[in-house]
Design a protein around this nucleic acid. Structure first.
Lengths: 195, 195
DNA sequence: CGGATATACTGAGACAGCCTCAGGTTAAGG
DNA sequence: CCTTAACCTGAGGCTGTCTCAGTATATCCG
């Protein structure tokens, strides 16, 4: 608890809000193009704002990434709740896994930041990551309760599998998205089954 | 074929070889500690060599990484051949997968470089990566031929799974190596089987 | 409307890391 | 020894991060 994680707050003054939003929009575009390591100076330039202004609103790169992906993560968490109400727990889990992988690989570098956030409390995205962890764990437990998923799989392990799939998606060649098949293999296993 | 990939060659003069080796040793240590993004200036400093000397021997970071991991990759390839001679094809494949994952995560950032090399011919590690790809593919085919592994799994997909596991290993918390269980899940699948 | 004031903006500059290249050094062969 | 190709050096240009002293202005309130 040495220092509070920076959660960028929407500022009070009108010009502040304008700049905050402009920076966020520029950041989303830049992250999409160049990944999470996009130049902050470029982002500031695109937002027509001096570099100091960017740092005023987003003191760390992680805080900017967090703000840029906040809505998407919230959607993902909401989706977990929605799917939990579905009839088939295995289908719900599988569907959510696909969605999670897609969110994790919104842009290059995101999975890494999210994974780090999961285990480091002093990080802007930690709270949201924990919430997502819970959502995923609930879906997993439901599927396990129904006897559809092996009982010895932990939520942490599930997220390892999801992160791996997301990493493959963001790192592989542009013309091949391996994550779909990746998840199939994870679900079904690569070893043949006895009939 | 625009430009040849740069494979660092052991230089001719005695002082050149000395420096080359010193840089390589320093690089291995630095990569281990700081990952593949370790400061090249620091590495040069540790090797008691000016920065220009480092660049003379290793014109790109990738070429230094390639040289630093060349032996390990060669061992891995040799191991594939050795295991191919084993009795049980599935055991051979599984054993090799574990070994591959361990090599891929020798230090932070390696998997990314290796994955990029796999699909980009203009890269120092491309040749070795291709050889490794072949070795893995042979083990896979053997296991598939024996009916032990699902026939629709391609070698590319296998490497996706391995890369994912390696990435989890290098990115996860230091006190938990998720790659072991990761591979178990990949092999067996997380969905329960009908008896 | 006209201060007062907290909030916000600016951009120069310190610093770190990458990479190049012109100029100096030296090992090795004859 | 002398030649020469191989090698080494480190200043310097460049990009990018991050800070901070100085300046501007939105907003509130009388």
């Amino acid at each position: 608890m040495a220092d509070e994680p920076y959660i960028a707050r929407r500022p009070k003054r009108a010009d502040g809000r304008r700049n905050y939003d402009a920076i966020l929009a520029a950041a989303r575009k830049a992250f999409e193009t160049d990944g999470s390591e996009a130049s902050l100076e470029d982002i500031a330039g695109q937002a027509q704002v001096a570099i100091g202004t960017l740092y005023r609103h987003f003191p760390t790169r992680a805080s900017l990434v967090e703000a840029a992906t906040r809505d998407g993560l919230a959607d993902l968490i909401a989706e977990a709740d929605r799917l939990a109400a579905e009839a088939d727990p295995l289908e719900a889990l599988a569907a959510w896994m696909g969605r999670a992988v897609r969110h994790f690989s919104t842009f290059r570098g995101l999975v890494g930041i999210l994974t780090a956030s999961m285990y480091d409390e002093g990080t802007p995205s930690h709270a949201a990551c924990s919430a997502m962890h819970q959502g995923g764990a609930r879906l997993l437990e439901a599927a396990q309760g129904a006897g559809r998923v092996r009982a010895d799989l932990t939520a942490d392990e599930l997220f390892d599998l999801l992160s791996g799939a997301a990493w493959v998606r963001e790192s592989g060649p542009a013309d091949r998205d391996g994550s779909e098949r990746f998840l199939t293999m994870v679900l079904e296993g690569i070893v043949t089954r006895e009939a």
